[in-house]
Design a protein around this nucleic acid. Structure first.
Length: 271
DNA sequence: ACGCTCTCCTGGCCGC
DNA sequence: TGCGGCCAGGAGAGCG
């Protein structure tokens, strides 16, 4: 569920509740998520104050007095603000309890998420160091995409999902953006023209922005445990629609696997 | 360097 | 209704 728009929505939702709050207690209810949880944090974090919260790619950065928490929601994670005495439910793996009685609770059925801590500048952490540009900034342009894609045989869809190329384009939005810009997802990245890459970049920005706008009102849907697209389903043109008619030309939408991931496209509109 | 495959984990859904 | 198999929106690790 968490693609970039959901992470951004989460950031906006939690930041006002945890900024300038002091941690009273850190509770782990599982040994590991994607990586083992550092139990030292249970005595290192109490007394630390969250000074600010930022997002980089799909990572959330919680700056504390002496270090920074690096969180990732994986495929099924969500963060909520609850009262510290709210009974935990299945898959509630981490609580960050504050002195004002509020609690930041991490839920993640599939345990693909991350809850890490670093003393150093988090942007130099190896998970963040080699990330590509943010898609919604002016650093992400068709000309940039053109320059880094020349000679690449990898499919354009896998290419734009590579976090070193650009961050935040997940499996759903990759199919949607390629449909919107008329590019077949299995076309080699190095063989897409500058003109079409400019169109693709415009499409990526538009769809992410649209989803962020939709996200604010639908954050409750985050709790859905299943793997289905949530609030954005109504607006999807090709994702999950194989066998349906293309909304533009009426041709049958096809699907194929690219890099183990389901990919959807219209064979008529995309070339 | 590049690109491919595997992997972590739980749960929902489909077909038999 | 029960069970096995398959699928899921991320992305790092390891390999050739």
């Amino acid at each position: 569920m968490p693609e970039l728009p959901e992470v951004e929505t989460t950031l906006r939702g939690i930041a006002p509740h945890i900024t300038d709050r002091t941690i009273l207690e850190c509770v782990f209810r599982t040994e590991k998520l994607r990586w083992p949880l550092d139990t030292d944090l249970c005595y290192l974090l109490p007394g630390e104050k969250i000074s600010r919260v930022e997002r980089r790619a799909k990572y959330l950065l919680l700056f504390c007095g002496h270090g920074t928490l690096i969180l990732h929601l994986g495929m099924s994670g969500s963060l909520r603000i609850v009262s510290a005495d709210t009974t935990e439910q299945k898959h509630d793996h981490v609580d960050l309890i504050f002195t004002d009685g509020q609690c930041l609770r991490l839920t993640d059925p599939r345990k693909f998420g991350a809850f890490l801590y670093t003393d150093a500048d988090p942007y130099t952490h190896k998970l963040l160091l080699h990330l590509g540009p943010e898609p919604l900034t002016d650093d992400f342009t068709g000309d940039y995409l053109y320059s880094v894609s020349r000679g690449k045989k990898q499919s354009i869809k896998q290419f734009i999902m590579d976090q070193k190329v650009v961050v935040g384009v997940g499996n759903i939005y990759a199919s949607e953006a390629l449909f919107s810009s008329g590019i077949r997802p299995d076309r080699a990245a190095g063989r897409v023209s500058l003109k079409r890459l400019r169109s693709l970049v415009v499409a990526i920005k538009a769809i992410l922005q649209k989803a962020i706008l939709a996200g604010g009102t639908t954050i409750h849907d985050f709790n859905q445990a299943d793997g289905k697209p949530g609030y954005f389903t109504q607006q999807l043109q090709v994702y999950g629609r194989s066998g349906d008619r293309c909304v533009i030309c009426g041709e049958t939408i096809l699907s194929q696997k690219l890099g183990q991931r389901s990919t959807f496209y219209c064979p008529q509109c995309q070339s």
